[in-house]
Design a protein around this nucleic acid. Structure first.
Lengths: 342, 342
DNA sequence: TTGTAAGCGTTATCAA
DNA sequence: TTGATAACGCTTACAA
């Protein structure tokens, strides 16, 4: 393992100045064809690898963006990353994935690191529970564009670009559908209440129930499915009570799984004994017995649009802040029973 | 948006030399407590952000590694990345995810980019179909350690560290189990044959069948499940034929889903009419009706071990090449019928 | 067309 | 304890 070849090594090798070598390698004008050939050949032969850190020192272009995701196990973020990559690769950009694990401190550490490492932009699903925008403001002030995706920090709409879905109507659609199918006794399960999207989804539940005159039973709102076994236990006790909901609504994919698990354990059959509306549309929804009716988020789109928006900002687009809101869609399968008289 | 504060800005602000500021900020010895305080306060006030590219120019430490994954949709890699992150974060390292999309050209582009961007090591699941090690050799020669995970390039064992599972026995275990349950008519589905792990899994199938005296029906080996609808169609025709296998073995998670899908479409019930052994253990396996018996890879372990190995190399450990091979485990659930007389 | 020299922000070495 | 200076590898005016 010899010392790395630099532009100087090549210069010496071919008897030219480093600047000429630089020009030749970067296909800049003002170099004779012969020289260029000569330089490229030598570069190849010496196994020269440009050192982008040095270049970044001058140009501050790193062709890297940072992506903050709050959890790794939720397939939503995998789909999102897929969309991000599809837009990034053709543009020659790469991304650094930072898993905040839903921990604001970890998020902060990562954000600081991303700043220091010269990312040109950041896609963030913020996890801060107490509206702490300070770090993101700092980053923006520092000249690094930020686009929020999936979640936003309330009241930050005018400050940051964002790409989200209409979470309220996503759940409202589910409620409307259940209502249409004759359901009046609805339960809902949520992973945890300190997440923006989840709060919105719950609001959508409350608002649509109110609108339709569906009575809300607070005890059928399970808001801590992520907290150990608490949530699952609570759901179990709800299902085993003498009076139980006729349908359960999920608010993300993990929760969908948890609901199915508890229902299986209780030995109920879907949809005859209980109906289920899942959240997030993943391939396995088709494969369950019965196939699960679910709210489908346009994951790939969220990834592609937020990345496109970010790259636009990196390129210096100075237009107004954009808050893109996409629509979720209810994919009807067989997990909801009709409660209507025939 | 004012100009970025540098170490010089701070130096001017507090009337000290840049070198002193550097020492103060990095908690190096040889700075009086008062000065350190003074500098840190000014740094804070000016919103100073160290520029790691410049630091890397001297130290060549970037605290970044590159990870090559071949596909984004396979949950295996999500679990793997989870393991990687768990080891990396406490050590202050970050990772750049590169999705080669099973495309050797794309893989090469990413590898080149990672080299140029000064990653200190690379975790790779190589996708090269024709044993092309040149790029990886180049990287290693250049001084960047490489650890292969999941897949290896045949005959590279003595050259590169690796963390894999015993793919042959993973499938063989499934075959033994099926045999024990009285199955003699086995089919197997594979995503594509140009992948190392898949070749091994197929070998494991052949070898164990031979050992047990199970006759192999070539037409029940579906080797192109990833190619459009070809694979699914072939499987469908196999299932609809007058003589069909009593059990189907999957060789990854996506293929498991495909098998379940086709079986559902054909209207067969599992396990009464056909048995299934899935590959990769994901939460939904528990939730299918019936729950799916599956080969469980120690995904998280693969991530953690390969990362630990890589960090060791980065730290300069000069021990012999390590080829870690982990064992998969068969998780028995209810998707395999007993064919034995009672 | 090619060479010289300065500088990007940081750190290490040596001198004060 | 602090300061001056050089160096990391590359790019880019400007000069030749």
């Amino acid at each position: 393992m010899t010392k790395r070849a630099t532009i100087r090594t090549i210069a010496k090798e071919v008897g030219l100045a480093p600047s000429t070598v630089s020009r030749a390698l970067n296909n800049k004008p003002g170099v004779s064809a012969t020289t260029r050939e000569l330089v490229k050949e030598a570069s190849e032969r010496l196994g020269y690898v440009p050192f982008s850190q040095a270049r970044a020192l001058k140009s501050s272009k790193t062709f890297t963006i940072g992506v903050i995701i709050p959890e790794m196990k939720n397939p939503f973020f995998l789909g999102f990353l897929d969309g991000v990559e599809k837009v990034l690769f053709p543009r020659g950009y790469k991304f650094i994935v930072c898993n905040s694990s839903q921990d604001p401190k970890k998020e902060k550490v990562y954000l600081q690191w991303l700043m220091e490492h010269g990312v040109e932009g950041i896609l963030a699903c913020p996890t801060s529970p107490h509206e702490d925008l300070s770090m993101y403001r700092k980053i923006k002030k520092y000249g690094i564009p930020v686009v929020f995706y999936d979640r936003i920090i309330p009241d930050s709409a005018s400050e940051f670009d964002s790409v989200t879905i209409d979470n309220k109507s996503a759940v409202a659609d589910a409620v409307f559908y259940l209502h249409k199918m004759g359901h009046r006794d609805l339960g809902i399960c949520l992973p945890r209440l300190d997440i923006y999207t989840i709060q919105e989804r719950l609001k959508g539940f409350y608002e649509s129930c109110k609108l339709l005159g569906i009575p809300i039973r607070k005890e059928w709102v399970v808001d801590n499915m992520y907290i150990g076994n608490k949530g699952e236990e609570k759901l179990r006790s709800i299902l085993k009570a003498s009076s139980r909901p006729s349908a359960i609504i999920a608010t993300n994919q993990i929760v969908t799984r948890q609901i199915l698990k508890v229902i299986h354990e209780c030995g109920f059959s879907i949809p005859d004994e209980i109906s289920v509306v899942g959240f997030d549309d993943v391939p396995e929804n088709e494969l369950f017995s019965p196939p699960i009716t679910a709210v489908k988020q346009p994951v790939l789109q969220i990834g592609k649009i937020s990345t496109t928006l970010l790259l636009g900002r990196i390129d210096g687009e100075k237009s107004d802040i954009e808050n893109v809101q996409l629509k979720a869609e209810l994919v009807v399968r067989k997990s909801v029973n009709s409660m209507l008289p025939p």
